[in-house]
C-alpha cells in the first residue's frame, strides 16, 4: 500500500500518460509550429515589414478579415435565430434540421467549395435568379462571404444552443409577473444572458473564416487585390519558391490566430462566470 502513502490518487499511469501526451504534442504540434517562428526570425525586421505590408498582401488582409467579419455577423444573427428555434419551438423535422446544422463540420471543404461555386454561378440554381438583378456572387468577394458563412454557421449555433437550453423558465415567468411584455423579457432578460455565448460564437466563426482555404478558392475568383485571400497568397508564394515571403505572411496569420484564441478563452471564461 505504498501507493496510498505517496500520493492521494490510487490510479496508475500518470507519469507514463502525461509523458507520452507531452512528447506527442511536442513532435506533432509545438516543434513544427516553432519552426515557422524560427524561420521568420531569419529575416531582418525591415525585410519582414516590407513583405507583410506589400500592397497585394495588405489587400488580401482586407479581403480576408473584412469578409470574415461580415460572415461572422451574418452567422451571429442567423445562428442565434436557428439555435432559438431549435431549442424553444417544436416543428416537424426538427431533429433532422438539428443534425444538419453540423454539415459544414462534416462536409469536406473542397466539396463545399465546388458545390457553392456551381449553385451560385451565373447559370446555377440560385445564381440564375440573382444574375438578372445584377447580383454576382460566384467569383466575386460576395462569394467569399458566402463560403465563410457556410463554414462558420455551426460555431455560433453550437455555442449559443446549450446556453438557451440552460435558461431557467422561472426567470421569464418572473419577468412577466413583474409586468414585462415578451419583447422586454427577450431584450432585458434573455439577451444579456446569451451575449457572452453570442460573442464567443462570433469569435469562433471569425477565426475559422480567416484561416479557411478549401471552400473559398473555388468560389472566390482569386483576383489579386480584389478577391485573393491571405491563405491563397501564402500558397502562391510557396509555389513560386518564395519561402521567406510565405513564412512571413504565415507568421502574421499565426499571431492573429493566437490573439483570437486568447480573446475566445477570455470570452469563454466570462460566459462561465456569468452562468454561475
Amino acid at each position: 500500500m505504498r501507493l496510498f502513502k505517496r500520493q492521494n490518487n490510487v490510479l496508475p499511469g500518470f507519469g507514463l500518460t502525461l509523458g507520452f501526451t507531452i512528447f506527442y504534442l511536442s513532435v506533432i504540434v509545438l516543434i513544427p509550429l516553432s519552426a515557422l517562428v524560427f524561420r521568420t526570425s531569419g529575416l531582418t525586421w525591415g525585410e519582414f515589414v516590407t513583405t507583410v505590408t506589400a500592397p497585394r498582401v495588405l489587400a488580401s488582409y482586407k479581403v480576408t478579415f473584412g469578409s470574415a467579419m461580415i460572415a461572422a455577423l451574418i452567422n451571429s444573427v442567423f445562428g442565434v435565430l436557428v439555435a432559438w428555434v431549435l431549442v424553444r419551438y417544436r416543428f416537424p423535422g426538427r431533429r433532422i434540421v438539428d443534425a444538419l446544422v453540423d454539415l459544414p463540420f462534416a462536409l469536406p471543404t473542397a466539396v463545399a467549395g465546388i458545390t457553392l461555386a456551381t449553385i451560385y454561378s451565373p447559370n446555377g440554381w440560385v445564381g440564375r435568379f440573382l444574375e438578372p438583378h445584377g447580383i454576382k456572387v460566384a467569383f466575386t468577394p460576395v462569394g467569399i462571404v458566402l463560403a465563410m458563412t457556410f463554414i462558420g454557421l455551426p460555431f455560433v449555433v453550437r455555442t449559443v444552443q446549450p446556453v438557451i437550453e440552460e435558461i431557467e423558465i422561472e426567470l421569464e415567468e418572473a419577468a412577466s409577473c413583474l409586468g414585462a411584455n415578451r419583447w422586454q423579457t427577450l431584450q432585458l432578460v434573455i439577451f444579456p444572458m446569451l451575449l457572452p455565448s453570442i460573442l464567443t460564437g462570433f469569435a469562433l466563426s471569425f477565426a475559422r473564416a480567416v484561416g479557411e482555404y478549401g471552400s473559398i478558392i473555388f468560389i472566390a475568383g482569386n483576383m489579386p487585390m480584389v478577391s485573393e485571400i491571405t491563405p491563397l497568397l501564402i500558397i502562391t508564394k510557396l509555389e513560386q519558391f518564395d519561402y521567406r515571403g510565405a513564412t512571413a505572411i504565415a507568421c502574421v496569420m499565426l499571431l492573429t490566430s493566437f490573439s483570437m484564441l486568447l480573446v475566445i478563452n477570455l470570452l469563454q471564461k466570462w460566459s462561465r462566470r456569468y452562468a454561475d
Binding site: T21, L25, L30, R39, Y243
Partner: peptide
C-alpha cells in the same frame, strides 16, 4: 495550458498546418 495547447491545431489555418512541415522537411 496543456488543454489549450492540445486545441491549438484547430485555430491554425490549414494552409499553415501544411507549410510548417514544408519548412522542416522540404
Amino acid at each position: 495550458l496543456l488543454i489549450t495547447l492540445i486545441d491549438l491545431p484547430f485555430s491554425v489555418s490549414p494552409v499553415i498546418s501544411g507549410l510548417i512541415y514544408v519548412l522542416i522537411f522540404g
